[in-house]
């Protein structure tokens, strides 16, 4: 009983919040120069944001070579790293963001639970 209960209200809240456009995304993508990996990361996140968060996001791309102090400020180790500053919780997505499903989960747009259910339904 207590295991199932919390899922429904959270999901309902998320859904309602997304529909009403209350979730505003502040994203910061840290890359290291114009490497193919950097370029594909930038392309991937732009496309993903346009597809899923159109109108509700703010994306800043930082080149760590140009602004190295950001690396320590943001606690960055890997590159590229996408930082979700808003909404909470803060998350760091490392890599070129080519795994769209993982990015969506990481940004909290998809939930692992919904993903699992989807896979289950398909089966």
């Amino acid at each position: 009983m207590p295991e199932k209960k919390p899922e429904e209200p959270v999901e309902a809240f998320e859904k309602a919040a997304t529909e009403r456009g209350q979730r505003y995304y502040v994203l910061r993508l840290c890359v290291t120069g114009i490497t193919p990996r950097s370029v594909s990361a930038i392309e991937n996140i732009r496309k993903l944001c346009e597809d899923n968060l159109k109108g509700y996001y703010e994306l800043e791309v930082v080149d760590l070579y140009q602004d190295p102090s950001v690396a320590a400020e943001e606690g960055i180790i890997a590159a590229p790293t996408l930082i979700k500053k808003n909404p909470a919780p803060k998350r760091k997505l490392v890599g070129d963001l080519s795994d769209v499903e993982r990015v969506l989960i990481g940004l909290g747009i998809h939930h692992k639970e919904t993903l699992r259910r989807k896979v289950h339904d398909e089966e």
Partner: peptide
């Protein structure tokens, strides 16, 4: 806090340390 979404390297650490 970390989600791996593709290829990456540790250049961030290098930049941080270098700085």
């Amino acid at each position: 806090e970390i989600e791996e979404t593709g290829e990456y390297d540790l250049e961030g650490l290098f930049i941080r340390l270098g700085h």
